[in-house]
Design a protein around this nucleic acid. Sequence first.
DNA 1: TCAGTTAATTGACTTTTATCAATTTAAAAT
DNA 2: ATTTTAAATTGATAAAAGTCAATTAACTGA
Lengths: 231, 231
Amino acid sequence: MDEKKITKHCGSCLTNLPMFNSLTDEQFELINQVRCRVKFRPGEVIFKQGTALTHVIVLNEGLVKIYLEGIDNRNLILRFARPLTIIGGPGVFTDFKNHVTTMAVEESSACFIDVKTLTDLVMLNKDFAINLLKWVNMHTLSNYEKFIELTQKGMHGRIAGALLYLHNEVFNEKNGEIIIKRQDLADLTAMSKESAIRIIKELKDENIISVDGNIILLNNIESLTNISLRG
Amino acid sequence: MDEKKITKHCGSCLTNLPMFNSLTDEQFELINQVRCRVKFRPGEVIFKQGTALTHVIVLNEGLVKIYLEGIDNRNLILRFARPLTIIGGPGVFTDFKNHVTTMAVEESSACFIDVKTLTDLVMLNKDFAINLLKWVNMHTLSNYEKFIELTQKGMHGRIAGALLYLHNEVFNEKNGEIIIKRQDLADLTAMSKESAIRIIKELKDENIISVDGNIILLNNIESLTNISLRG
DNA sequence: TCAGTTAATTGACTTTTATCAATTTAAAAT
DNA sequence: ATTTTAAATTGATAAAAGTCAATTAACTGA
């Protein structure tokens, strides 16, 4: 490795990350020296629930899903993540275990940063500490919304909500396409695959969405919003 | 107020809090000067979801419930809290709004600390920052368990899990009594009050628990554990 | 291209859970 | 003690959601 001199850039990765804005060149160099970039193909596990949490990643390219492995092989997808975000988990600073599984959905690449370095940065840089607290609390906010979504809405509302989430926060593409497997949609909304299929079909029959295999287009966002709100 | 000189103790409150162990006398004094103790009667709201988050509290005495106000006046209880814990919320460091409601269940008292002081302490003391991150992540861990609990277990499993939670983590009393309203039990397990009542009755009929009004005794913890695990 | 595997679909059926309405009981206030 | 109010209970019913089994379609690797 003769890139020890590279500062504030490695590919398009770390510099663009708001989280790291507060770091000095010297502090940034700490990350730069330990980081280690790896590629993953769709379906490959990046972090496995239950294993030791030794690193966090900054996702560079691709798309990953972050999910809880629950009872009887049922999964609950907490969220999808796109570049450029830090992906760690609540094991950081606590028991240093992975409490979620992170899996590549599209071909992805990520830089690994060991938690020791992350801890050092929190100790060295007050603003980074606050940013990290902010980051964690923002996720807690999302989790709170998800609690209501999953426990107080019927299946139609949950699917509508999930589609809007995917459209607005995961697949921000010009063509508006969402690409997702039925099972993932079920895991995202805590229902059976068959139920997810049936509701997708209903929405398609009502022309609220268009479906072509795993590609979904939202034709009527207003209607979906209403369904999502009604529950 | 002529208690500016009091350091490291105010009642039994702040010194006993592991979170504050890392503070220097000087830093502790910052809290001590701004804190402000208030009593609450059962049913009184301490923080109301939707309002500005200007303070966090350290609970001194009593019992509070922390819940999300969801759809159609339905609440979801996230957790109960006993002394001596900090109660804030994910609005700290983000949008500084309350995203949960905190209500006294028993007569309670709490010291208010403004978020500015809390922020100063994070900036002043690295260990306090790490402790706070740890605290927040521990709650995320609990939330993850709750996701599985609520989305992958049937009503019997949820009630059993809730009773074990109340027994082990909320009412650690020698007599083993749990005191809770049916509605709160329903709000804790995301089901209707009627369903909660029916399951409590079943458990009573099978002698797994004893019930006298709002007082519940766990007669067979092993059995409850099995029910909780089975889902 | 073809076999082999995985994902998606569908219908029938069962189970789970909520809702509604009517009482009954318990708790608080005067 | 008595009125008033809130909480708990019960049964009947409907709605929601899962399961199972059988196909069909789509995708993958020789």
